[in-house]
């Protein structure tokens, strides 16, 4: 079922295990799954994560400076965790709890 559901569904699914993830971990995973390897693809996936966070489905729990350039050098990296509302919306979207 890789790469055939809407990207935000897949992002929520990755978070449904309740663990905290850095944005670059999720972005690079989605990039591989959906074949979006360009810089533009990376930014658009990251914007999806920002939208999910602003919709209250993910919570921004930690930030750090990207000193080594793992994602974008000298930009902020964000760490997110799923919220209760995110779980509800995730299960509405027929995603399975892990």
């Amino acid at each position: 079922m890789i790469g055939n559901r809407p990207i935000k569904f897949r992002i929520l699914e990755l978070f449904l295990d309740g663990k905290e993830y850095w944005n670059y971990e999720i972005v690079s995973k989605i990039q591989v799954e959906y074949g979006m390897n360009s810089g533009y693809g990376r930014d658009s996936i990251n914007f999806d994560i920002i939208e999910l966070a602003s919709g209250g489905m993910l919570k921004d729990v930690e930030q750090k400076v990207d000193e080594e350039g793992i994602y974008k050098k000298d930009f902020l990296l964000h760490k997110y965790v799923i919220t209760d509302f995110g779980r509800v919306r995730g299960s509405d979207a027929c995603l399975k709890y892990v």
């Binding site: 055939n4 559901r5 809407p6 990207i7 569904f9 959906y34 533009y40 658009s44 509405d92 979207a93 027929c94």
Partner: peptide, 18 residues
Amino acid sequence: VLGKYGELGRTLKEFHPC
């Protein structure tokens, strides 16, 4: 222009939840 036809199709297919 945004290269989102793929996402458009994927979203359309999720009729029940989305």
